[in-house]
Amino acid sequence: MDTTKKTIIVFSGDLDRVMAAFIIANGAAAMGDDVTMFFTFWGLNAIRKPENIKVKKSFLQWMFGKMMPRGADKLGISKMNFGGMGATMMKMVMKQQNVTPLPELIRTAKEQGIKMIACTMSMDVMGIREEELIDGLEFAGVATYLGEADEANVNLFI
């Protein structure tokens, strides 16, 4: 076990939970730890590009893509979302309190060399293609994540 390695499964697509994952990841990286983030199912929405990318999909995959938020700025919050107003209100309060916004946390994670892996099985199920996701990701399955987790002393599921 490597006491300087951390892994985080990002399963949720909720703004507050994804922010927590990136705050923890960036904090660990700033302390010198190697960090791997594994994005699966709804967590993939946080790393989607905001623009609509035209790719061939089945009808159901196309519907998934239309219904899911596209990118970090479009995520709702887990509680008191109020039809989307909750995220707007939270972002206003975060700005007033000088809390780093999610897109900037993602940029910082890339700059710190945090390994971000998109789950290929979840991508297949949800009809998300590589070109629809942000640059700088790795693409792999659960075995790759488990290999990373086996070496870490902290494994989080958010």
Rank of each mutant, 00 (worst) to 15 (best):
D2Q: 11
T3Y: 06
T3A: 03
T3M: 04
T3E: 03
T4H: 06
K5D: 02
K5M: 04
K5G: 03
K5W: 05
K5P: 01
T7M: 00
I8S: 00
I9S: 04
F11H: 14
S12N: 12
G13E: 10
L15P: 06
D16W: 08
R17D: 03
M19C: 05
M19Y: 08
F22P: 00
I23H: 08
I24K: 05
G27Y: 06
A30E: 11
G32K: 11
G32C: 07
D34A: 11
M37V: 12
M37G: 01
T40S: 14
W42Y: 14
L44N: 02
P50F: 04
P50E: 12
E51H: 03
N52D: 04
I53L: 12
K54T: 05
V55A: 10
K56A: 09
K57Q: 15
S58F: 13
S58I: 10
L60N: 13
M63E: 02
F64V: 08
G65D: 13
K66F: 15
M67S: 05
P69L: 09
G71V: 02
D73H: 13
K74H: 11
L75C: 04
G76C: 13
I77E: 06
I77A: 07
K79H: 13
K79M: 14
M80K: 15
N81V: 14
G83M: 09
M85P: 15
M85F: 15
G86E: 13
G86V: 15
G86I: 15
T88V: 11
M89D: 11
M90A: 05
M90Q: 10
M90D: 03
M92H: 06
M92Q: 06
M94K: 00
K95Q: 02
Q97M: 15
Q97A: 14
T100S: 07
T100F: 12
P101C: 09
P101S: 08
P103W: 13
P103A: 10
E104N: 07
L105P: 01
R107Y: 05
K110G: 10
K110W: 09
Q112A: 07
Q112F: 10
I114G: 01
I114P: 01
K115L: 07
K115A: 04
K115N: 08
M116K: 02
A118W: 06
C119R: 03
M121Q: 13
S122L: 09
S122W: 08
D124S: 10
M126E: 14
M126A: 08
R129K: 14
R129G: 07
E130R: 11
E131K: 09
E132S: 07
L133P: 09
I134Y: 14
D135A: 00
D135K: 03
E138D: 08
F139Y: 09
F139T: 01
F139C: 01
A140M: 02
G141F: 03
V142N: 04
L146M: 08
D150L: 11
E151R: 12
E151T: 10
E151C: 05
A152C: 06
N155K: 05
N155Y: 02
N155W: 03
L156Y: 02
I158V: 09
